[in-house]
Design a protein around this nucleic acid. Structure first.
Ligand SMILES: [Mn+2]
Ligand SMILES: [Mn+2]
Ligand SMILES: [Zn+2]
Ligand SMILES: [Zn+2]
Lengths: 151, 151
DNA sequence: TGTGAAATTGATAATTATTATCAAAATGTG
DNA sequence: CACATTTTGATAATAATTATCAATTTCACA
């Protein structure tokens, strides 16, 4: 009954606590972008007595451990989402600059992978930079906001 | 002696003020990522008497007008940089997750353009999303931090 | 199956970045 | 130049996140 992610805790010399289990569980259940405050609220709803500082600390830790991805949509808070490793689950984000709506997309991830691999090799040669992850953001107008702009 | 960017102010029905001129001038001179606080300090150094609120307001305005790009490197503040339109000036960012160093890169922008064009078309069809701009971030370890990690 | 050193946590104070307020000053159209 | 409108400055307010530190919990190992 040892969860697959627990080996990550061994590797980082971190302890597996009920709070940490609960936070990961929240992300598995919700499967969406969550802010620290939202995670805190969802934990309370599950009767998990936890302090907000612990939530912040653990979101930071879990993203450093690679179990969560930290994303920023420009609204002043940080969001987190479960790191999905299966090929079909890799995705990026469309952000509407008018209403703030965020859409996950995973179109052309094959081509993306091929292109970024080539790019990473160049960056490694030229800057000595070792890439661990990447994020692509598209900014623009969602369907609804385009209509509003025309009128 | 009308600057090339002044037509943008007409288009957005905004007034050209000395502060706005001075802020744009700062970015032209410094040619790097600047936070609101840094812009504020640089303006003071130039004897430009301005309030910090005005700096925030105008950085926001200038990026909405497309004259500045707003970027986020995950350190809790927003940064801005001059929008460069020439083909060779389009670039993205490498961010060291250990020391926070940020490097501009512009490798493979040709391939990037070709790939993103194809992607944008797909996203437009599937989600009705109209792309205005995009950002790519690579997270990893800079050369120095890789050495420190090995030892 | 305990022990204890080290890690984690909670309550809350502190910090930091950014936004709101609103009267005074500046802009630019006609 | 006049004046309707926009912009600005000082500063209060807000909001997200981090620091503090004593109490509690974890887990390696005896
Ligand atoms: Mn997502
Ligand atoms: Mn840059
Ligand atoms: Zn929208
Ligand atoms: Zn580094």
């Amino acid at each position: 009954m040892r969860k697959t992610w627990e080996k990550q805790f061994d590797y980082f010399n971190k302890r597996v606590t009920p709070h940490r289990r609960a936070i990961i569980e929240i992300f598995e259940e919700e499967n969406r972008h969550l802010s620290a405050e939202e995670v805190y609220m969802l934990l309370k709803k599950k009767e998990e007595k936890v302090g907000i500082a612990t939530v912040y600390r653990n979101l930071d830790l879990l993203s450093q451990m690679g179990l969560l991805h930290r994303v920023n949509f420009g609204d002043g808070k940080e969001y987190y989402e479960m790191t999905r490793v299966l090929p079909g689950e890799h995705h990026h984000h469309l952000i509407c600059t008018k209403c703030g709506k965020v859409v996950d997309y995973s179109e052309l991830v094959g081509e993306e992978h091929e292109f970024l691999n080539r790019l990473e090799k160049k960056l490694s040669n030229k800057y000595g930079f070792l890439t661990q992850s990447h994020q692509i953001y598209f900014y623009g107008l969602c369907e609804d906001c385009q209509l509003i702009c025309e009128s």
